Deep mutational scan, measured.
Amino acid sequence: CHSECLGNCSQPDDPTKCVACRNFYLDGRCVETCPPPYYHFQDWRCVNFSFCQDLHHKCKNSRRQGCHQYVIHNNKCIPECPSGYTMNSSNLLCTPCLGPCPKVCHLLEGEKTIDSVTSAQELRGCTVINGSLIINIRGGNNLAAELEANLGLIEEISGYLKIRRSYALVSLSFFRKLRLIRGETLEIGNYSFYALDNQNLRQLWDWSKHNLTITQGKLFFHYNPKLCLSEIHKMEEVSGTKGRQERNDIALKTNGDQASCENELLKFSYIRTSFDKILLRWEPYWPPDFRDLLGFMLFYKEAPYQNVTEFDGQDACGSNSWTVVDIDPPLRSNDPKSQNHPGWLMRGLKPWTQYAIFVKTLVTFSDERRTYGAKSDIIYVQTDATNPSVPLDPISVSNSSSQIILKWKPPSDPNGNITHYLVFWERQAEDSELFELDYCLKGLKLPSRTWSPPFESEDSQKHNQSEYEDSAGECCSCPKTDSQILKELEESSFRKTFEDYLHNVVFVPRKT
């Protein structure tokens, strides 16, 4: 048989008469490798580009789960590009990614509803959504962080984005990388972005840091009482949809009607710091009717980097990364020049730590249904340095008659930039024990000054392991946590139920 035959053949030295091919099969003959313009397919066939392209389009058009959109890589027609490569849609070739590779997620039936953290986790790592997304989240724990972890990498949506009755959302900033909504599939009414009845939605994105392009379709905003109209108009300008909307697409009466839409800028007039305090004062603000001013709200939190936005980490279910302080308005003076500047002394802060701070007014709604208010920009203030805590785990070892090696770990709280350490030492008198000992005694162990690591005695271990207080009263049991108490109650309830079950099964009433 021919060298490319495997198993047997019907005619000697003829690659077209093989029972099976050793390498690849091409047009009725066995070959060692697939010549151009053919590609290896499933490690035994040679196919042309049209064959591989037909497989790709067949799966793409069917949208069946589990099928493969075949691509070409290293002269092979394979189910998908290997790690580190992405497909070129024009020629199906796998090309190296520039940075992290995109991950295209194809949605069944063309859309997916995100109504819980669990459903959001199914899209973790996706960068391109081939379909439409509907966000409908009523509640949950730590929602802002969970949504950002699972949806934060999405850069492109081919269909539309719909935010509907998501009472738990305060902001859409968890879509931190969303840059493009194509609108290839539109919501009824030709809408590519749809926001309806979101009672706590206050911000779409921080438009000073976020760009969003909507290729096709219109915007729809109705019944978002805490979303200011200025935020919607800003989205029109940034996304390129200005002029597409009709009169009733953006409701003037049901958007922002319960919001404090600040239209003035508060400026800080005085800032002073110490290692654990920050004193702030800002310019006074009074609405047209000074009785509408209820006070100020001061927001602050630790910020290692200057990239904080107002609604980071917030949701309507209680999660809030900001510390909020309510401040009463100052006494009002008739003389504008003698107006008191409101302020606040922030206490209990960490030394040498940068804080993000902003302040906003708290006002009631005027009778004319106009909203007044003022808010400052987010500023960054760093507390002063102070003395560091003591170095940890000092170790001293003498390696000769004239040297001592000293080692330690950095302090747990540096409280500033540590530039150097101060080492103090003092000579001590020799131990009298060394002169009084009889060095001729056998088995004498000389006193040693070398360091030995501390260890816990058996008594201390027994005390720590004991669940009861000892007789001397030195140790006591740790208080039980809520989960331990709940577990004990469940076990007790189970024992009672099981005992009742045994009584009912074992003891049967005697027939009379």
Rank of each mutant, 00 (worst) to 15 (best):
G139K: 07
N200W: 04
D257Q: 09
T273G: 07
D328H: 08
G348H: 10
L406N: 15
S338Y: 11
L406S: 01
F311T: 07
L227V: 06
K375V: 01
D377M: 09
Q203F: 11
T383A: 06
L107F: 13
N224K: 02
Q339V: 08
F175H: 03
E155A: 05
S192A: 08
F275N: 12
D249G: 11
C228F: 01
H222V: 13
R281H: 10
T323S: 11
S319D: 09
Q199T: 05
N255P: 06
E122S: 08
E109A: 12
L151V: 11
S333G: 09
G140M: 11
K226D: 03
L212H: 01
S400F: 06
A316E: 15
R179N: 08
F175N: 03
Q121V: 00
D393N: 14
W282K: 02
L201S: 05
R176V: 14
E302Q: 11
W344Q: 13
L293V: 02
L349Q: 04
E184Q: 15
S366P: 05
E148S: 14
V363A: 02
R291M: 00
L201I: 06
G140E: 12
D206S: 08
D328N: 13
M297L: 12
A303R: 07
T254W: 13
I134E: 01
K253V: 14
K277S: 07
N320D: 00
Q199F: 04
D206A: 12
A120L: 05
I154E: 03
L349K: 04
D257W: 03
F290T: 02
L298M: 13
E262T: 04
S333H: 13
D292F: 00
G240P: 03
D335G: 09
F268G: 01
V397M: 12
T254K: 04
L180W: 08
S171I: 03
L252Y: 07
H222T: 15
W205T: 03
L151W: 00
A356I: 12
S166Y: 04
V128C: 07
R165S: 04
C317H: 15
N307V: 10
D367F: 03
I395P: 00
T241H: 10
I404C: 04
I404Q: 15
L201R: 02
F299T: 02
S402N: 14
W352N: 03
S173C: 10
Q203V: 10
V308N: 01
A149P: 05
L280G: 01
L406P: 00
A120Q: 06
F268M: 09
E264A: 03
A303V: 15
T353I: 15
S389H: 04
A149L: 06
A120F: 02
L107G: 08
N307K: 14
L147K: 00
S269K: 12
G256P: 02
L279K: 15
E231C: 15
N136R: 06
F193P: 03
F220A: 13
K337W: 10
T386F: 08
P287V: 05
V170A: 09
N255R: 04
W408V: 00
I154V: 09
P342E: 04
S333I: 07
V238Q: 11
D326H: 02
R244A: 10
L212W: 15
N248V: 12
F275L: 06
P410A: 15
D326N: 07
E231F: 14
Q199I: 07
Q203L: 09
Q354G: 11
V117F: 12
D249Q: 04
T213L: 07
G125M: 06
S208I: 06
L153M: 14
A120T: 05
Y194N: 15
A195K: 00
P394S: 12
L201G: 01
K409M: 00
S401Y: 09
F174Q: 02
G243M: 09
A385R: 09
G295M: 13
L201E: 00
A303T: 10
E122G: 14
K350T: 09
F174W: 13
H341K: 13
L265M: 08
W286M: 02
N190E: 03
K218R: 09
W322V: 08
L133F: 02
Y300H: 14
F221Y: 11
L153K: 14
N211A: 09
R179F: 10
S402R: 11
R332T: 11
A374L: 01
G131M: 03
R176Y: 12
L229I: 00
T118G: 15
Y167N: 09
I278S: 02
T215F: 06
W344N: 14
C228N: 08
Q339D: 11
T241I: 12
T383G: 01
T371D: 14
L293N: 00
T323V: 11
D289F: 00
Q403G: 11
A195M: 06
K277C: 14
L204T: 10
T273W: 15
I114F: 02
R332M: 04
D328M: 15
L204M: 14
I135V: 08
S166A: 04
E231S: 10
S158Q: 10
R247V: 11
A149S: 07
T386L: 10
Q354S: 06
S166Q: 10
T323R: 08
L331F: 07
P329S: 06
Q354L: 11
Y194D: 14
K234E: 15
F175I: 13
K162Y: 11
L362E: 08
K162G: 11
S398R: 03
D377S: 15
K409H: 09
N150P: 06
K209P: 13
S173Y: 13
I378T: 11
Q314H: 14
M235I: 14
D315G: 11
N399H: 13
D289K: 01
L280M: 15
I379F: 05
I181H: 00
S319M: 14
L345W: 14
R291N: 03
S366L: 01
K242S: 11
E283W: 07
D206M: 07
M346T: 08
T309M: 03
R179L: 08
I214N: 03
H210V: 11
C228M: 00
D257K: 09
P329M: 05
E156T: 07
M346R: 07
N211I: 08
T273Q: 14
Y300P: 01
G131C: 01
D206G: 08
G139Y: 01
F296V: 01
M297F: 00
F268L: 07
R332P: 11
A149W: 14
S269M: 10
G295R: 03
W207M: 14
E122Y: 13
F221R: 01
A251I: 12
Y194I: 13
